[in-house]
Amino acid sequence: MLSRSLTLVRKDLLLYRADLAPILIMVVLPLGFLAFMVPVNRALLEVRGYPGATGAEQALPGMMVMFALFLLGIVGDQFYREYGWNTWDRVRLAGDMPEIMIGKTVPALAILLAQLTIVFGTGTLLFGMDIAGPPLAVAVLLAAFAVCLVGVLVAEFALCTTFSQFNALNVVVVTVFSGLGGAFAPIDLLPSWAQAAAPFTPTYWVIEGLRSVILDGQGVAYALQMAVPVLLFATAFVVIAAVRLRAGDVKVPDNVR
């Protein structure tokens, strides 16, 4: 079983490498956005009692989370392309659904984790951000969020027959999860209904966790605590996928490329 999944992992990584530009754009774009958002957030943080803050402490986690969700649209395309290329059935001829899904999701996890790490690392260096807490706490939250993103990915794939539907649903997910999660503004500045709804998004726990580690010096134990609800969300998304997805489902890519 493992060897078939590994073959698929290798193949998907080759496919991503062959079409790297869209992924690179999703790495560069959040950094570009930060250039606009950091000054505003610096002023906001100064008012809130963080006089030495660069503004990236507030803006970076939000932008990173939002563009990781956007990246799902590109990673998801890799799933639908298998149908456009008529390779999904050929892969099914050789393996069972769990092997195939492992083979498809592990590369997706690697891509998402790489994007999160590069955006966070580069953003930290570019904007001279100090992280008050331990880097391991940041790593815990990024890893948990990457796993949750893969859960969102497979749930969306399971729910959507066409890639257009997938894309539309993903835009809704990006908007809701980013807005309620505090990607655009601190949670306490959101309307009361949004503040009440925020904990029902995984992004809330990730963004709050990261900001607390960066600004307040929270440690690994705290990060693990914040990672638990994120992983619970991931589990729920995977359950949705397991219930809805069938090997013989017919999926429709936008076109064959």
């Binding site: 060897s3 078939r4 590994l6 073959t7 698929l8 290798r10 193949k11 080759l14 496919l15 062959a18 079409d19 290329w85 008529n86 390779t87 059935d89 050929r90 892969v91 001829l93 050789a94 393996g95 490329r257």
Partner: peptide, 27 residues
């Protein structure tokens, strides 16, 4: 071994990568 009616290959991969993938999948 099955060669379905519809052409099923990975167009962005090399011929040898295609062959290696499906050979590997079949053990």
């Amino acid at each position: 071994g099955v060669a379905p009616q519809d052409l099923g290959i990975y167009p962005t991969l090399s011929v040898s990568a295609n062959l290696a993938c499906f050979g590997g999948l079949n053990g």
